[in-house]
Amino acid sequence: MRIDWVRVAGITVVVSVVLIFSMLVLRSEFPVFDHVEPVEIETTEFLWTYRLIDMIAQAFVLFAAAACCVAVLRVKEKKK
């Protein structure tokens, strides 16, 4: 397989942009619900605090589903 320089450049750009933006985001501070009217919402944190394990496992299920789609839709490689 020949190295596709356009692709390599694309990946590099994406990775660097992700890094730069995550740095910027980490430096700054998001006004988390600073402007919200004081309403008692207790149940909304339920999913995060009680069901964290399920949520993480769910991420893997999504990953597996993506892999399934890729596996079924893969194209045949050309013979070299």
Binding site: A57, Q58, F60, V61, A64, A65, A67, C68, A71, V72
Partner: peptide, 24 residues
């Protein structure tokens, strides 16, 4: 039970694609 179900789905989904793997 629901944690079981989450992993159950992981097992099922992967096995669907593996059965259909030699799709030619």
């Amino acid at each position: 039970f629901f944690t079981l179900f989450v992993f159950w789905e992981l097992m099922c989904l992967t096995s669907y694609a593996l059965v259909a793997f030699r799709k030619q």
